[in-house]
Nucleic acid binder design. Sequence first.
DNA 1: TCGTTAAATAATCAAAATGTTATATAGTGT
DNA 2: ACACTATATAACATTTTGATTATTTAACGA
Lengths: 114, 114
Amino acid sequence: MTTTNVFAAIADPTRRAILDLLARGSRNVGTIAAEFPRLTQPGVSRHLKVLRNARLVDVTVQAQQRIYAIKPEGLADLYEWVAKYQSMWPDTLEALEHYLDARAAGEKAKGKKR
Amino acid sequence: MTTTNVFAAIADPTRRAILDLLARGSRNVGTIAAEFPRLTQPGVSRHLKVLRNARLVDVTVQAQQRIYAIKPEGLADLYEWVAKYQSMWPDTLEALEHYLDARAAGEKAKGKKR
DNA sequence: TCGTTAAATAATCAAAATGTTATATAGTGT
DNA sequence: ACACTATATAACATTTTGATTATTTAACGA
């Protein structure tokens, strides 16, 4: 697996969805897979492997189950990278929040993207 | 080009390097390409197209040249996404900065695991 | 040990991304 | 109009990714 980096790991929408799911609580593989009816269990396991390699999730063994938990520190790489561009942003971190709020508000009018 | 999203756009290291470069100032394609001796000009143009589609850069025509400029608002999508995980981070935004600083400092003794 | 359950890995395939060379498009200056 | 410069696009080969089915590994309970 060449994918040992955070950027590549979050490039895939399914993996982002898995992270979003885990953000709401840790789960075992079967439970995760159940949320993705379009995918098979091995497919989900492979995505989890990519997330593991990127250090975005953590596994703990519990009987035959593997409980996956989010490990958000892994996102720090990404955070650092984005932070480099903050100086070119509207203004400071504080102003950014307002900017995002405004943007989110404006978004309601149109069909959401992403 | 299926890649109209920021996540996929920044997944590629060359494109991140282009953004880093543009963060230091706008440039025309030839100047950008000169920074990537391993790539040909059409290769660079293709990466620029992906960045354009992701709205991460802006082009202005100047004679026969195309001047590319970074458009960091496009990174807001990413920022929003990461922000969702901030609550699970060490602490607040403020604490995060300290966290990153500490991390950066600790990084000097290489080979860490997180 | 046997049968069941849970998840990972292997083999394989199709689709997408990346890079190349060749060519087209478009603006400049004469 | 012509030659020149700058960049984009087309066509194509190669590599990587994402998904599937089949199989393996491992833990559990009877």
